[in-house]
Structure formats: C-alpha cells, structure tokens
Design a protein around this nucleic acid. Structure first.
Length: 348
DNA sequence: TCCCATT
C-alpha cells in the first residue's frame, strides 16, 4: 500500500510497501521528511498529536550545531493513528516544503550512508527514468532530480537513496562512468556528501563573502566581531536574537536568518459563501489560539466574497490544531477546505 | 555539480 499524495515534482514516495517486516514497530513508527528548517520538535508533536496519542516523537538535529536536519520520527500508540497520519499529513505543504510521511524502516546500520549523488545526467531524463536506471540494483527509497529554480529545467544532477548501503555500492560499480541508454555522455555515480557537514561551510562562506570582507583571516573591528558572534550563535542555535539586536546590526542586512518564522502562520480558507465576512473567520479560528489577522477576499465590483479568505495565527501548534479541526468543517451548506497557505496562486 | 531518510 503505497501512499502517493502530491509531494512535489522531484520527490517520490517509493517507500515502505507491505514487504517490510511486520513488527508492531513498523506499524506505529513514522518518519517525517522535508520539514521546514524552523520547525521544532514541539511543533512536530503538536501537528501529529492532532491525529492521535503519540508514544514518542523526535526531531533529528545535527549533533554539533543543533540545527534541524529536516526530518523526524513520530511513534503512535495506535497503528490506526499512524495510518491516519500518513493519509492526512503526507503531502502537507508547510512554508516552502511539502512534507513526506511514511512508515519508518527498522533502524539498522545497513541502511545508513545509502544515498548516491548522480551527475552528468541527460537534461531530458525524468525522475522515473532515473529510477528505472537504478532499480535493478536494489530497493529505491527516494529519488530526486535537481532543477533550475527559475526555468524548472533539469540540472543534470540528482540523488538516489537505496534501502541498503550494499545496494548503493553495487549501483556505483554498475553505473559510474556508464552511458545511460540513448545518452551521449557517461554519468558519474558516487556516494553523496554527508548532509551535516555542509552547514558549517555555508556559514563560513556567508562570513567571508559579506561586502566588507571577502578574504579569510582574523577579524579586527568590533562590528565584525559582533557579526561573527551573531552568525555563529544563529548558526549553532545557541540563542535567538531579538529583532532589536538584529536591527542594530546594519551589517547583517541581506542575510537570511534561519529559524525566523516571519509574521505568523498564514492559513488558507476555501469555499466560503459569497456573503461571508471577517467575523465568521474570527469566530471559527479564535477559539484555537492567537489570531492576528483575518481577511475575506472580495470581488472589487460586487463586494461579494470570492470564496476564500486568509487567517494569520501566531503559534504553529494552534494553527495546526485549527486546520486539523476546521478542514472539512461544514459551514452552512458548504464544506470548508482549510490548510496552510501555499505559494501557489489561487485563481478566482 | 550535493537533494536535508534512521532516532
């Protein structure tokens, strides 16, 4: 039973069919991938706790920096709740991410370091074709082709994660330096970099590529020292800086602050009646927690609601609870659709 | 040339 909800064009769900060992663990323990960088373990627990009772929950963090690695585990008490979580939360879009929810495989050393980096792919090769090339070597857990953010065209590089490391090793032996069918150039297949090593390099390049300082070396000025301290603190998650501190650091302008959630969590409410007004949104969402803004989108000429609106809530867990409770809610003769707002444009 | 899938 494969779960195939929309999970982005370059992300598959080739995971955990019924061929897995049927231990109790495999039926209650879920892995959650592609979490937003700023999501905390408590928020993860809140979101999944809205489905049913959680036995344990863990957000995986970098051992050194404490930064979220973007995935976590949720272990339910009841296998039915685990199944329900997959059915209702897989493919959920949070900020820029589309989360993936699937059964966790039993933990073992043999499944670690099974991720391959593939380059030199024909630009025309699809994700499915990439999988077809690699599937002879083992069970593919995830595959991905990187695309140019602007044009959407393949960059000719991608990833294949196998179930077992030995499968990945065999794929390297079999495919590295080989030409895929119809291709003119050979591809390179090697183990992917360890994701946790990357964070530090990104921080260093931020430090050294800031406008006043392009070369590595000792820091002399007070402003630069402060900037270094702040960057390290932010990067290593030691503390969060108040907006005041950040405003005072003009040299920080242009640097994206990890973990900054913005003004709140925007919720998209669809299928409102033409005569809906703001008060109904306050009434519906207010009981779940702090609501800072509501808006009903209206037609400029008729002043009638165009069928949707937005609600901004301060706290993630309250927003998640409101969504879990109000999505599918019957308002009059209409069934509402409630979700976190996406970046998609909603045409009227 | 590197996508955050094993607590």
């Amino acid at each position: 039973m494969e779960t195939q909800l929309s999970n982005g064009p370059t992300c598959n769900n080739t995971t955990n069919g019924p061929s897995n060992s049927n231990t109790e663990d495999s039926k209650t323990n879920l892995i959650v991938n592609y979490l937003p960088q700023n999501m905390t373990q408590e928020e993860l627990k809140s979101l999944f706790g809205s489905i049913g009772e959680i036995e344990s929950c863990k957000l995986v963090r970098d051992k050194i920096t404490g930064q979220s690695l973007g995935y976590g585990f949720v272990n339910y008490v009841d296998p039915k709740d685990a199944e329900k979580a997959i059915n209702t939360l897989n493919g959920l879009r949070l900020q820029t991410k589309t989360i993936k929810v699937s059964y966790a495989r039993p933990s073992s050393a043999s499944i670690r370091d099974a991720n391959l980096y593939v380059s030199g792919l024909p630009k025309t090769m699809s994700q499915k074709e990439l999988e077809q090339l690699f599937t002879q070597y083992g069970r593919i857990i995830t595959s991905r082709i990187l695309v140019d953010q602007v044009t959407g065209v393949s960059r000719g590089v991608g990833f294949i994660r196998f179930d077992k490391r030995v499968e990945a090793e065999e794929a390297i032996k079999g495919l590295n330096g080989q030409k895929p069918p119809g291709a003119t150039e050979p591809i390179t297949v090697k183990f992917a970099n360890n994701p946790s090593q990357k964070t530090n390099q990104a921080i260093l390049s931020q430090l050294y590529q800031s406008p006043n300082r392009r070369y590595p070396g000792p820091l002399h000025h007070q402003a630069q020292r402060l900037r270094l301290d702040n960057l390290l603190n932010m990067a290593y998650g030691v503390k969060r800086f108040s907006p005041m501190t950040i405003d005072g650091m003009t040299s920080l302008a242009g640097i994206n602050i990890p973990g900054h959630a913005g003004t709140g969590w925007c919720i998209f409410v669809y299928n409102l009646a033409p005569d809906a007004d703001e008060s109904i949104l306050w009434q519906m969402f207010g009981p779940f927690g702090a609501v800072t803004n509501v808006k009903v989108i209206r037609d400029f000429n008729t002043n009638k609601c165009k069928g949707f609106g937005f609600v901004t809530m301060t706290n993630y867990d309250e927003a998640a609870m409101a969504i879990a409770s109000l999505n599918g809610y019957r308002l009059g003769d209409r069934v509402l659709q409630v979700s976190f707002k996406t970046n998609k444009t909603h045409k009227a």
